[in-house]
Design a protein around this nucleic acid. Structure first.
Lengths: 241, 241
DNA sequence: CTCCAGATTTGGTCCGACCAAAATTCGGAG
DNA sequence: CTCCGAATTTTGGTCGGACCAAATCTGGAG
């Protein structure tokens, strides 16, 4: 006989969920409840299908769904890694769509403009409300940036780190995640540019101007400096993609 | 014999594409090229498997992949709908993760704070750079809001519409999408509150204060009014979830 | 103890079938 | 002819089995 009746009998369920939904909900529960530890590996697919009494098809669909929801992180040939949902997960989940948006028309410019607007507001906020420790972090980042002028790779890193400070001052976890998303999405599109020490010096000067304005508690000057800096940066990369 | 050899022979391709990838790429192409119109229904799965000469499993996986990329919008028992990737698609793609984030600790407040910060920057920008037509749109939205004070549902709509104007002034399509995402995510959490005409009057006054400050081209006053308005709104809803 | 080859595990892909919900067709009542 | 409900077809959801290749484990040679 090909048609074995299912081991589980669930006929009295009229308007229930799909089988995959139950699996998704269960695993979801296990993740948020901590039963499945963050960073741990999901059990093998054949395990799950036995545990839930379902076919591997459904298991794989459930895994796919959980991956899109950011609760799992699956690499091609490896076991899915359990990820407790965080703000970064939200942004990484949209990577696919964003890559399309960036490819069409002025997609990169559109995103870059958002970054400019947001960061302008952030430096303005920093000028007005930065605490001592924020200023200290900014100064440290600036110095590291200065020390890296002759090292292209390191300069890039310290550059990003300097800007990252602004996104952290608010204390709201969304902004650092936004910054990381910006860096991830935008850098993919002008990774081919080769920075010279001269170029880096200009960028550093931009950073310092922003920093000085913040020290002076001058939001308008800080915003203006940030705008000049990012506008400058845009001009040097606009042709690289 | 159960093991028919595949119609396509691709042994000389060691690390090449998978069958599903070809399907994904082709459909992706058809969508971005407009061959598959936005909003139209994807052909039945059995059609696709015939057209590509592959099994339905592969078709389904391709559909799943395209869904995660935001190019398709599939509901459980229905044909997938073709969606040309837009900025709104990006945000709707993260709905799953966000719902989790909002449920934990001060998730709603965190998101609301982001909204406050962004919108404060937007009204400031509006005060400085709003054009005639922007002011007109703002005035019209404000009047509609005033006329709806006695209609709870309509007031909500006009309220959202008023705030939406600020997100549109920049002309950057990301911001309206952000606003729609805010509304979608936040409203789910305090839809149970019943607004009274008195309450609406207070809200309207807040809107008018913002508008007046923008008319006066006073960014600081506009920002302050916005902060007061949103802070006020928060206090009335913070207990409803 | 180290290291490599073979055996086992496990994810990736594919197939054909069955079921139930949805869409469509169709025939009879009005 | 129109309209509505039942029968039929279409279509998405699920299933179990199979094969492959990469990853992992295991055991013996050096």
């Amino acid at each position: 006989m090909l048609t074995d009746q299912p081991l589980e009998d669930m006929p009295p369920h009229p308007g229930e969920h799909r089988a995959a939904d139950i699996v998704v909900a269960t695993i979801e529960q296990d993740i948020v409840s901590g039963l499945l530890e963050n960073g741990s590996l999901l059990p093998p697919e054949r395990d799950l299908m036995g545990r839930f009494g379902i076919s591997r098809t459904v298991v794989r669909e459930a895994i796919a769904t959980l991956t899109t929801r950011g609760l799992l992180e699956s690499k091609p040939r490896h076991r899915p890694v359990v990820r407790k949902p965080g703000y970064d997960a939200a942004f990484s989940a949209v990577g696919g769509v964003v890559s399309h948006l960036l490819r069409q028309d002025g997609g990169v410019k559109t995103l870059y403009d958002v970054r400019i607007f947001l960061e302008a507001s952030l430096v303005r906020h920093a000028a007005l409300h930065a605490r001592k420790e924020d200023i200290a972090a900014l100064r440290a980042a600036l110095e590291r940036n200065h020390a890296a002028i002759d090292d292209p790779v390191l300069f890039d890193n310290t550059d990003v780190a300097f800007h990252a400070v602004f996104y952290g001052i608010l204390g709201n976890p969304v902004f650092p995640a936004v910054h990381r998303a910006f860096v991830t999405w935008l850098f993919e599109h002008w990774q081919s540019m080769n920075r010279s020490p001269e170029q880096n010096l200009i960028y550093y000067a931009g950073h310092k101007a922003i920093f000085d304005a913040i020290i002076d508690r001058d939001p308008d000057a800080a915003e203006k400096a940030l705008l000049a800096h990012l506008g400058e940066a845009w001009e040097t990369v606009r042709g690289t993609f």
